[in-house]
Amino acid sequence: MAWFKRKDKGIQTPTEEKKDTPKGLWYKSPTGKIVDTEELEKNFYISPEDGYHVRIGSKEYFEILFDDNKFKELDKDLSSKDPLKFEDKKKYTDRLKDAQDKTGLKDAVRTAVGKSKGEDLVIACMDFSFIGGSMGSVVGEKIARAADYSLKNNIPFMIISKSGGARMMEAALSLMQLAKTSVKLAQLADASIPYISLCTDPTTGGTTASFAMLGDINISEPGALIGFAGPRVVRDTTGKELPEGFQTSEFLQEHGFLDFITPRQELKNKINLYLDLILNRPVRA
C-alpha cells in the first residue's frame, strides 16, 4: 500500500500562510454560467451567456439612468423611528442600525432628481439589501415627497420597485403607506405628469398592491419575480393548481399586467422614448 503514502512531501505551505482566492472576482448565475465581475459590471450586471439580470440597487440604477451619474438626492437623511417599540428576537432599532451599517443606506429607498438623456427625471429606487426592501414609513414618506417634487416642478416620475413587501416591524403604519403613495400618484395623474413603474426582481407584497402596479406604463426586466403573495399562499387561498412561472414578468406581460419587458442595457433609451412620445418631445436617438 506504499503508493498511498507520499514519501516526498515536497514544498509544504503552513496553513496560516495559505492564500484564498479573493472573493468577488467571479459571479455564478443560477444556470451555472461563470462571468468575471468586471465584465458583469460593463454589461449592466447582466450575465452575457444566459441574459440573467443580477439584482442591483439604487447606486447601480442611478449610474445607468442618470447622465454621467449626476443627480441630487432628495431627503437623504430621512430614517425610521420605532413608534411601536417592536421587539422580537431583536429590537427594531438594532435591526435598523445593523442594516444601516451594513449597507450604508438610511432606509430601503433612495430618491433623486437628475438628467436622463438631457431631460429632468425624478427616480425613487428601492434597495433589497436593506431589510429585504421592506416598505415602512420612511419608504412611503420618501416616495410621497418625491412625487410632490415631481408635481411642484412638473417633472416625470419613476419608481424602481424591489421589495419583499410591507415591513412587519411597523405593522399598520407600514400598510398605511399603500394608501399614501397611491394618493400621491393619483395627484400626478390629475396633473398629467407621467409616472413609470419598473418592477424588478423581486416585486412582492404591499409594493405590488400599491405603487408598483399604478404606473401610466408598467414595465419590467426579464425574469423578474412579481406577485402579491408566494405561490403556496396563492394556491391555498384559491384552491387551484397554478401554472408554472405564473409570477414571472414574462407571464404577467402575456396576461396584460405589464406593458413591456426590457433588458437593462436598453432601459434608459426605452423609458426616454416613452416620455418623448407621451410628452410630445422630439424623439432622440
Rank of each mutant, 00 (worst) to 15 (best):
K23I: 11
S29L: 01
P30I: 00
T31N: 15
G32K: 11
I34Y: 06
V35S: 14
V35F: 03
E38H: 12
E39A: 14
E41F: 03
K42D: 15
I46T: 15
I46G: 03
S47F: 01
V54Q: 11
E60R: 13
F62Y: 12
D67V: 04
K70Q: 15
L74Q: 10
K76F: 03
D82W: 02
P83N: 13
K85H: 08
T103I: 06
C125V: 15
F128S: 08
G133V: 05
E141T: 14
A144C: 09
A147H: 11
S150D: 02
K152N: 12
N154F: 04
I155L: 07
S161F: 01
S163F: 00
G165K: 01
A166P: 03
R167H: 11
M168A: 15
E170S: 12
A171S: 11
A172G: 08
Q177A: 03
L178I: 15
A179Q: 04
L185D: 05
T203L: 02
G205C: 00
S210D: 05
G215K: 09
I217W: 01
G223C: 06
A224Y: 02
L225Q: 04
T237A: 15
T238C: 08
T238A: 09
G239C: 02
K240P: 08
F246R: 07
Q247M: 15
E250C: 09
F260K: 11
F260R: 08
R264S: 08
P282G: 09
V283T: 13
R284G: 00
R284F: 00
A285H: 04
